[in-house]
C-alpha cells in the first residue's frame, strides 16, 4: 500500500490514492466492456448482432414502435418496483428481529430464512406454480386488470428477494453501537423516535444496498417469473428467452441501452437537484 503520501492526502483519504483510483477504473472498465459492446450492437444493422455490419438507428425506431416490447418492459419494471418496496420492508424487519432479539430456535430460523437464497430457482418456480395452481390463484389473478394481474409474480419475487435484503441489512446492523440507542432513550426519546432517528439512519446504507439487490434480482428473474406468470403477463426476461429460438434481435439491445441511459440521466439530474449537503446521504 502507498506509504508515501502526496501533499494534501491524509492517511484515510483512500479516495485520493492513485493506486485505488487505477484499480477502481480497471475493474469498472472490465465491468463495462461488455456493456459497451452491447450498446454498440444496438446500432448494428446485422440482425443477429454477432458481426458488425453497419451503423443504424433502426433498432431504436423498431423498439420504440414495438408495443409488445414496451409492455414487457413496463411489466418488469412495475414488478421490480413493487417487489423491491415490499421486500425491503419485510427484509429489514427480519434483520431487526434477528439483530435485536434472542428467541428459541433462532439459529434454525436464520437457516430457514436463507433457504430462498439456497434453493435452485427452478425448484422454487415449480413449487410456486404448484401452489398457485392448487390454491386457485393462477386462474384468479388472470381475471384482474393490470397491474393487479401481476400479483402472483410480485408475491413470488418478494419471497425470493426479501431474505437477500434481510441478510444484507443484518450485516450492516452488526456494526451498530447499542450505546447510541441507549443514549437516545436516556435523552427522553421514545422507542419509536429512537428507531426512526437513530437506527434507521444507521441502517440506511444497508437498506439502499438491500433495495438495489432486490431490484436487480427481480428485474432479471426469468425462471420463477416464467412459472408464476399467467397468460397475459409477459415480462422482459421471458420475452428475451423466448426470442432465443429465432434469434435475439438488436432491438433488445436498444431497449436495454435506453434503460441504462434513462437511469443514468435520471440519477445525475436527481443529484444535481439535491442540495450539496444532502447529496452525501447513502
Amino acid at each position: 500500500m502507498a506509504q508515501t503520501l502526496k501533499p494534501g492526502s491524509g492517511p484515510l483519504d483512500y479516495g485520493n490514492r492513485t493506486w485505488l483510483k487505477i484499480l477502481f477504473a480497471a475493474i469498472f472498465f472490465a465491468l463495462y466492456a461488455p456493456i459497451f459492446t452491447l450498446i454498440a450492437f444496438s446500432f448494428n444493422t446485422d440482425k443477429r448482432g454477432v458481426v458488425w455490419r453497419g451503423f443504424t438507428f433502426d433498432n431504436y425506431v423498431k423498439a420504440w414502435n414495438n408495443a409488445d416490447l414496451q409492455e414487457a418492459m413496463l411489466n418488469s419494471l412495475t414488478i421490480a418496483f413493487i417487489s423491491t418496496i415490499i421486500a425491503t420492508i419485510l427484509g429489514s424487519m427480519v434483520a431487526l428481529v434477528l439483530w435485536r432479539f434472542r428467541f428459541p430456535f433462532k439459529a434454525g430460523y436464520e437457516g430457514v430464512m436463507s433457504l430462498p437464497i439456497v434453493i435452485p430457482e427452478i425448484c422454487m418456480g415449480v413449487s410456486l406454480l404448484l401452489f398457485f395452481t392448487n390454491a386457485g390463484m393462477m386462474a384468479w389473478s388472470v381475471s384482474f386488470v393490470w397491474p393487479f394481474n401481476l400479483i402472483n409474480i410480485i408475491i413470488a419475487h418478494v419471497a425470493f428477494c426479501f431474505p437477500f435484503v434481510a441478510i444484507v441489512v443484518r450485516s450492516r446492523l452488526v456494526g451498530f453501537n447499542r450505546q447510541l440507542e441507549e443514549a437516545s432513550k436516556d435523552l427522553g426519546a421514545s422507542e419509536w423516535q429512537t428507531f426512526w432517528n437513530v437506527i434507521v439512519p444507521f441502517m440506511m446504507p444497508g437498506l439502499i444496498a438491500g433495495a438495489l439487490l432486490a431490484f436487480t434480482l427481480s428485474l432479471d428473474d426469468f425462471v420463477i417469473t416464467y412459472f408464476t406468470s399467467g397468460p397475459e403477463t409477459v415480462t422482459f426476461p421471458v420475452k428475451v428467452y423466448s426470442l432465443v429460438r429465432r434469434g435475439v434481435s438488436p432491438e433488445i439491445n436498444a431497449a436495454s441501452t435506453a434503460l441504462i441511459v434513462i437511469t443514468v440521466v435520471a440519477t445525475v439530474l436527481a443529484m444535481k437537484l439535491q442540495a450539496p449537503d444532502k447529496s452525501g446521504k447513502g
Binding site: 406454480l129 404448484l130 395452481t133 392448487n134 393462477m138 386462474a139 388472470v142 416464467y226 397468460p231
Partner: peptide
C-alpha cells in the same frame, strides 16, 4: 412443465 400443473388460461 408449466401446463403440467394445470392450464392457467
Amino acid at each position: 412443465a408449466k401446463l403440467k400443473a394445470g392450464n392457467p388460461g
